[in-house]
Structure formats: structure tokens, C-alpha cells
Amino acid sequence: MQLFVVNVLISMLWALLTGKVSVGSLTLGFVLGYFALTLLYPAEEEKKNSYFQKTMQVVRFALFFTKELVVSSWRVAIDVIKPLPLMRPGVIGIPIDAETDLEITMLANIISLTPGTLSLDVSKDRKTLYIHAMYVANPDDLRKEIKDGLERRLLELLR
């Protein structure tokens, strides 16, 4: 967290030094500052430091999420064109490991925005999330895909 503040300060300093405060110069300053900070720390310490790890995780998750968003709108476009009887929608329940309100909310939101799935409800004991899926070939496969793909990535980011 301390390093994050330092990084933001570096990016502001860069923008002031180059003489124009804009989105591009601030972003460039932030990226340059990040690499400067990684150079300051030896490699083994870099692995331990939570700021560098978190940053890599956030970047990876953001890329993954953007890809999923693009794929999901593409799939909806195809679904709209296709003849309807090819769809096999279904409502299935997924056991979830997410515990706090924040984790469950984020998981439900991200499930809603990824291709083919839409979260509907959480059971009262907060153990199961009910989702509506566009194509249910095999419920167990879908359950495994969401647990191993989305939920694992999200929880390793948040915990």
C-alpha cells in the first residue's frame, strides 16, 4: 500500500516534469514508476512484496475480464441471429466458497457479465448461487468451469 502511494507520487512528478498534465502522461508516469520501483527491489524480495504481486494479479484479472466481456457480447450477437430451438437454457445451482458480502457480490456481478451465464439468486445459507445459463449441455461441466475459472481467479485476487 505504501508503495502504491509512492507510485502515484512518481506519476504526478513525471506529469509535472514533462509539463503537461493529461491522462497519457499520468499513465506513462505510473508505468515508468512501477518499473523503476521493481528495479529498486531485488528479485527475491519482489516475489514476497504484496504490492508487486497484487499489481500483476490485477492486470491479469483485468485482461481476463475484458476478454470475457468481448466474447460475451459476441456470443449474444450469434444467439440473436441463430434459430431459437438450438438454445438449451437452464437454471443450475453452484456451490460457492466466497463468504463475505463483497466476495459474493463481485462473483455474482462477474458471472452476469461473462458469456452465457446470468446470476439469479443466493440461497439463504449463502452456500449456493443459482444461475441461468444459455447453453446447458452438462450441468456438472458448467459448474466445474465456473468454480475453477472465475471463482478461483476472483478469490485469489481478493484474499
Binding site: V76, D79, L84
Partner: peptide, 25 residues
Amino acid sequence: VAVAGVLRLPDLFTRMHAATKTGTV
């Protein structure tokens, strides 16, 4: 595309797929 989905898909839940994802993007 989103509006075509809202008009064409058969039930409320499939329509929400179109409105949520494609509308947001």
C-alpha cells in the same frame, strides 16, 4: 444487437442475457 435480443429471444431470462451484457458493452 441488444435490442434485437430483447425483442426476439423467447423468455424473460434469455432477454436479460442480451440486455445486461450487450447493452453494457
